[in-house]
């Protein structure tokens, strides 16, 4: 497990000042379609889960079966690649520390999400520390929704990671170097990471670090097959 934590994509944050996203904060992975945002988020999720932190994975417009299959495939690959011996124990840890909330056919809104989190806490005593929110359509989501998510994260003490889909034809950056679709809402995010596919692998580049200056070298390279860190 230690080997996984050492190779997890979250190692990128070792290059940041704060070293973590932090409770009550929003982080976002920006990438074009097919680069691996969901896979990367699942890795982040497993990083938290294997540290024993309960997590909630929110999926917008994808059912829980699909989310579960992502976890199963990535888990299986990790076990094989890192030669993990205690597979059953880790699997049990994954099942116990993960709750999938799916919202289909435009059912997602912050109010419903809040109600779900309250339900989990009061009826199951399940209090996540991390929230993954995958599949939110940044292009068609109002700023108020992100403000609401930030408020929710503060209220529940969550570190919230989102995925944002960018487009090849919308490559412009704002004055802070943040690309579309986060260029007009970057003030709401404490950590912004860009996923950049190249011939040699996928690079995670740190674009925003809690308002601290970011070094252009703040990047890690991920193995495109396992999404584990090859080099920093």
């Amino acid at each position: 497990m230690q080997r996984f934590i050492k190779a997890s994509p979250l190692r990128l944050l070792d290059m940041s000042v704060e070293k973590e996203l932090g409770s009550g904060n929003l982080g976002v992975l920006i990438a074009r379609a097919g680069v691996g945002k969901t896979a990367c988020l699942v890795h982040i999720a497993l990083d938290r889960i294997f540290r024993g932190d309960p997590l909630v994975h929110v999926s917008v417009e994808e059912g829980p079966e699909k989310v579960d299959s992502y976890y199963n495939v990535i888990f299986h690959d990790l076990v094989k690649t890192l030669d993990m011996k205690n597979e059953q124990e880790l699997r049990l840890m994954m099942e116990r520390n993960r709750m999938i909330l799916a919202y289909m056919r435009r059912s997602f809104d912050v109010t419903r999400l809040r109600a779900s989190l309250v339900n989990l806490a009061s009826n199951l005593s399940y209090k996540p520390r991390t929230m993954i929110l995958d599949g939110l359509d940044f292009e068609n989501t109002e700023r108020e929704v992100f403000e609401g998510l930030k408020e929710l994260s503060r209220e529940f003490g969550l570190e919230t990671w989102l995925s944002a889909l960018s487009h090849r034809h919308k490559m412009g950056l704002n004055e802070r170097g943040i690309p579309y679709p986060c260029d007009e809402i970057d003030d709401l995010f404490e950590v912004i990471i860009h996923m950049d596919p190249t011939a040699s692998g996928v690079y995670l580049r740190l674009l925003k670090d809690h308002g601290h200056p970011v070094s252009p070298d703040a990047k890690v390279q991920l193995d495109p097959n396992t999404f584990l860190v090859i080099s920093a």
């Binding site: 799916a102 059912s107 997602f108 989990l120 009826n123």
Partner: peptide
């Protein structure tokens, strides 16, 4: 219906159940 989600989760929890996921659809 979504309004009963909490009741249902609680009833499962009381039965030594483990909730795996919750999907809201309308």
């Amino acid at each position: 219906p979504s309004e009963f989600q909490g009741n249902v989760m609680s009833s499962i929890n009381q039965r030594r159940g483990m909730i795996l996921s919750s999907t809201e659809d309308g």
